[in-house]
C-alpha cells in the first residue's frame, strides 16, 4: 500500500537530456533509494517501483518542466522528500515543485494533453521579419498539412495541422526562434522537427534544420482554451 502519492515537476536539461525515457525510471528509482526513501512496489513476480511519467521527451530534447508521479510506503514531509532526492539526482535533473496527490488523482498520462516548445534554428539564408510572418501565417492558414513519416514499414502520410494550437516566430540574430504549442494524446502528436521541416518545404523558408535546438518548455492540461499545470490541477 502506498501511504503517499507525489507529483513532482523537474527539469531534464544539459547532459540529462540524453537519458532515454525508458532509462529515466531507473534514474529516479535509484536516486530515491539512495535517498533512503521507501517506494511502493507493484505486485507480481517482478515488483517494480511505482514511478510514472507523462509523455516521453525525445532523447536530446531539453525539458524545462516535466512531471513524474511517485508512490511511497511512508508519509514524509514533502519538502524533505524533495531535498533528499534532489541531492541524489544527476546534473540536469532539478526538482522544481512537488505536491502530495489524493489517492484517487488521475495519472499524468490521463490528464496531460498539450505541450509547448521553444525551437531555435539557424537561417540558411537571410530572412526578413515580414517574410517570416508570411510563411508562418501561410502555413497556419492551411486546413491540412500532409507530412510523410518514414518508419521501418515505409512512409506514411499524416495530417499534422490539427495538432497545432499555436505557432509564433521571431528573428534573433541569425536564428529564428519559434514558439510552438501542440496537442498530445493517445493517438499521437507531432514532433517540432516535423513542423519546421514542413514549414521549410511548403513555405520555402530557408532554415538550417541540421542546427535545430528544441526545448520543451512545458506539458499542460488544456481545456476550453485555457491551460494549467498538472500540479496546480491535482
Amino acid at each position: 500500500m502506498s501511504a503517499m502519492r507525489l507529483r513532482i515537476a523537474y527539469t531534464k536539461i544539459e547532459d540529462a537530456r540524453y537519458i532515454a525515457h525508458l532509462d529515466l525510471t531507473r534514474v529516479f528509482e535509484r536516486a530515491i533509494r539512495r535517498a533512503g526513501i521507501h517506494m511502493s512496489y507493484s505486485e507480481g513476480f517482478n515488483p517494480r517501483p511505482k514511478i510514472s511519467f507523462g509523455f516521453a521527451l525525445a532523447v536530446g530534447t531539453e525539458g524545462e518542466r516535466e512531471y513524474v508521479d511517485v508512490e511511497l510506503q511512508e508519509e514524509i514531509d514533502l519538502g524533505e522528500v524533495l531535498a533528499r532526492v534532489q541531492e541524489q539526482l544527476p546534473p540536469g535533473i532539478r526538482l522544481l515543485q512537488g505536491r502530495a496527490l489524493d489517492q484517487g488523482a488521475k495519472s499524468l498520462m490521463a490528464v496531460l494533453n498539450a505541450a509547448s516548445y521553444r525551437i531555435r534554428v539557424p537561417m540558411a539564408l537571410p530572412i526578413q521579419a515580414e517574410r517570416l510572418q508570411e510563411a508562418v501565417s501561410g502555413w497556419l492558414g492551411r486546413e491540412h498539412v500532409t507530412y510523410s513519416r518514414y518508419s521501418k514499414k515505409g512512409p506514411t502520410d499524416k495530417d499534422i495541422r490539427p495538432w497545432i494550437k499555436l505557432l509564433e516566430a521571431k528573428i534573433q540574430g541569425d536564428e529564428v526562434i519559434f514558439d510552438l504549442e501542440v496537442e498530445m494524446g493517445n493517438s499521437g502528436s507531432v514532433r517540432p522537427e516535423e513542423v519546421l521541416a514542413s514549414l521549410r518545404e511548403l513555405e520555402n523558408l530557408p532554415i538550417e534544420l541540421d542546427g535545430i535546438q528544441v526545448i520543451r518548455t512545458g506539458v499542460h492540461v488544456s481545456y476550453e482554451g485555457g491551460k494549467s499545470s498538472p500540479i496546480e490541477l491535482a
Partner: peptide, 11 residues
C-alpha cells in the same frame, strides 16, 4: 543509438 553511452556524466 543510445547517446548516453557517450556523455560520461553518470552518477
Amino acid at each position: 543509438l543510445k547517446p548516453s553511452r557517450y556523455i560520461g556524466s553518470e552518477w
